[in-house]
Simulated assay, not measured.
Amino acid sequence: MLRRYGDPVRPGQRYTFRPGIYALIHRGDEVLLTFQAQPRAEFQFPGGGIDPGEHVRPALHREVLEETGWRIAPERRLGAFRRFTYMPDYGIWAEKICHIWLARAIRPLHPPTEPDHTAVWLPAREALSLLDNAGEAAFLAAWLSR
């Protein structure tokens, strides 16, 4: 059973199953977040949906590169959580299974190619207070307590 974070399931609401992969990217005591300005301003772990037929690691590299412009080295899977949310970018209600990987930053290749995204390095403790997603915050807090 996966732990659920965020809003409760809405009775009668139909949800689209949406698996995704996200990275807790570190460099010393800093973490790399993406700041997404639209449709709602928020800091988040870089990542996103795993396309049908796409393998996990290529999806992780693709999503991080799109949202941050950075090349990474995945270290290990930390776990997963579930959330039920509205995705305004797609106009759907989704049951998201969010797989979280720990990754090391290798080098920047280019600016983010995902519209309205900015790559931001922050001290990990500061990042913890800025993350809007409770599931991501829980994984960052666990990593900080290591």
Rank of each mutant, 00 (worst) to 15 (best):
F43H: 08
R40W: 14
T68L: 01
R83L: 09
P115F: 00
Y90P: 06
E95N: 07
R146K: 09
W93H: 11
G79L: 04
A137G: 08
P112T: 04
G48P: 02
H26V: 12
A137Q: 08
I25T: 03
R27F: 13
R27I: 04
R125K: 14
V120P: 00
R57K: 06
Q13P: 08
F139Y: 12
A80F: 02
A41T: 02
C98G: 04
C98P: 01
E54D: 07
K96G: 03
T85I: 10
A59M: 04
F139E: 05
P52Y: 07
Q44I: 07
A103G: 09
F43Y: 15
V120N: 03
G20S: 13
R125N: 02
Q36F: 09
Y86L: 03
A94I: 11
E30V: 04
Q38E: 15
G12W: 10
H61G: 01
W121M: 03
E30A: 09
P108I: 06
L24G: 00
S129Q: 14
D51V: 13
L2I: 12
Q44H: 08
A141I: 08
M87Y: 12
E114P: 10
R10Y: 07
G28E: 05
I92C: 07
A141Y: 07
P74R: 01
H110W: 08
G12P: 04
I92G: 05
R107E: 15
R76W: 03
R82L: 15
G69A: 05
P111I: 05
E95K: 01
G20L: 06
I100M: 00
P19F: 02
A127T: 08
A137T: 06
A141L: 13
G135M: 10
Q38D: 09
A23I: 01
D89Y: 11
D29W: 13
L128M: 03
I106K: 10
F45G: 05
Y22E: 08
P52H: 04
T113C: 09
E42Y: 12
V9H: 03
A137E: 05
I92K: 12
L131W: 00
D116I: 05
E54L: 01
R4T: 13
M1I: 13
